[in-house]
Simulated scan of single mutants.
Amino acid sequence: MGKLVLLHKADSIYEDELDVVYDFPRPYLKAMQAAVGDWIVYYEPVKAGPRGYFAVAKIDRVIPNPKVEGRFLALIAPDSFLDFDRAVPRLLDGRPLESALAGPDGRPKSGGATQLAVRRLPEAEFARIVDLGLPQDLEHLEETRYGAPETGPGLEDAAAAFARPVLERLTRRPYRDVAFRRKVREAYDYRCAMSGLRLRNGGGRPEVQAAHIQPVERQGSDWVRNGLALSGTLHWMFDRGLVSIAEDGETILVSRNKVPGDVVARLIRPEGRLIRPADPRNRPHPDKLRWHRENVFGQVLAAGPAPWD
């Protein structure tokens, strides 16, 4: 096994769906096969945008691309993709975070390895990049972000969380939930995407929740593009198939035979259109929305009394 950096452009012509598959040509096959079962870091090249290193995932297996001769697909392990809380810059104090991109004086090289779409990444450099993008104390930062913890003592073992190894953090569900919630709520500016409301409680904490479009337990991921910022009631309705999003990525669909008209009028914006993140790279992915329409919308019965009963 071996860790890698994979280049990705938002407007890539390849069949990349970052939490599902990465498309690459034959010259990188050996390196990708060696990385099966190990972690990779996604990187945005300089000409594509400002993000630098922006996410991690694990390669599950590599297969030939059935549509294109000479190309291959790295399939991403379910429940492994995770956006960085903050993008990690290419350079730190003027020096590359990857030793392969630095010259003898530690300054950035030009050409050569910097042009490779797949680069090997030593363990120590992987850990350093992840620590910068996903801080060890992220859970504690979120608990204390708005003053006192929301649930009293909160993380009683907060100090211990600071020392969690990188791989433990990447696979630990409570940590991943916090990272996903922070990324999704920030992408929507802490506003409910369906009601348009931006509510905060008395302590200043945002009331909006982060909803998975395709649930993790049904092979969904913690990608920001698999998330929606929703109020508690609309989150409940979305998970139970009472509302969804149309193929245009904006029109809010409502199961009219299950949701009273007056409830729709109170909860959903009058124009019936989704508020989407300002950054197109954070907007709901069409494949995720299609999955929800085909597998959840109109098919899941509401369990227990509805919030408006």
Rank of each mutant, 00 (worst) to 15 (best):
R256Y: 11
D248H: 03
A148F: 08
L116F: 11
S110N: 01
L92K: 14
V254W: 04
L138R: 12
P149M: 06
P45W: 12
R107E: 14
N282P: 01
L132V: 08
D309E: 05
I213M: 03
R198A: 05
L91N: 09
G106S: 12
E15F: 10
L167V: 03
L234K: 08
I129F: 13
P307Y: 05
Q209H: 15
R90C: 06
V21T: 13
D131Q: 10
P165N: 14
A211W: 03
L170R: 00
W291R: 03
W236K: 11
V263S: 07
S99K: 15
L97P: 00
E168D: 13
D279G: 03
E139H: 04
F54T: 12
Y146F: 12
Q219A: 11
E250M: 04
P25D: 13
K3I: 00
A159D: 11
G232Q: 11
P27R: 15
D79I: 07
L228G: 10
K67E: 08
Y188E: 15
E186N: 03
I40C: 01
A77T: 02
G37A: 06
Q115V: 06
R281T: 15
A211D: 05
G298E: 06
V184F: 07
S195P: 01
N282V: 02
G232L: 02
D239I: 04
I129P: 07
E69K: 14
H140C: 09
G94E: 03
W39R: 13
A179F: 00
A161E: 04
V21N: 10
S110G: 04
L97N: 02
G227K: 00
F54C: 09
L6Q: 00
E142Y: 12
V130S: 01
Q136M: 05
Q219N: 13
L101Q: 15
A278I: 12
K67I: 01
L197E: 05
L73A: 12
R293P: 01
L289S: 11
A193V: 07
R198F: 06
Y14T: 01
R182P: 00
T114Q: 09
R185E: 09
P284G: 10
N295H: 04
R266K: 14
A161L: 09
P50W: 10
R119F: 02
K258I: 03
I245D: 04
Q209R: 15
